[in-house]
């Protein structure tokens, strides 16, 4: 790993958004840009964008059923070794049953998906880093 990539891999990127569907695009753009700095392939970046969208959508739709305006969704991503890790968490009502098309897509696109319910929901996803071929 180059020195520059080592420095990037020590970085943690975080953002917190209100439960506003129009901000999903912003989350995707930010995560895609961060993943691109790690030289990940286009395919891997597209997978991460889709999986994170599913996790955030789940939180926006279900985490705060009574007080949507007050609810926040937190997204964090960083690199550990050859793994790109992203966590989507909220402090709302816990995910009752992790089923559905969105969860299926997350599990199909990411290498690991872990869902924890404890004073909210935390979805932890891992994508093995495939480096783009040098041109």
């Amino acid at each position: 790993m180059t020195e520059e990539k080592k420095e990037m891999s020590d970085m943690r990127f975080e953002m917190t958004i209100p439960c506003e569907p129009k901000l999903l695009l912003v989350v995707r753009l930010a995560l895609a840009a961060f993943a691109a700095t790690m030289d990940m392939t286009v395919k891997a970046i597209e997978d991460i964008k889709r999986a994170v969208t599913e996790a955030c959508t789940n939180a926006i739709q279900h985490a705060y059923p009574n007080t949507r305006q007050g609810g926040m969704v937190h997204i964090a991503c960083w690199v550990e070794g050859s793994n790109f890790i992203v966590e989507v968490s909220d402090e709302g009502v816990g995910m009752s049953s992790p089923e559905g098309l969105g969860i299926m897509i997350m599990r199909a696109l990411m290498d690991e998906v872990e869902i924890k319910v404890d004073r909210g929901t935390k979805v932890r996803m891992v994508k093995r880093i495939e480096i783009r071929d040098e041109e």
Partner: peptide
């Protein structure tokens, strides 16, 4: 250039 599960639904 992007569709999610809500769109598929």
């Amino acid at each position: 250039n992007f569709m999610d599960s809500v769109t598929l639904g």
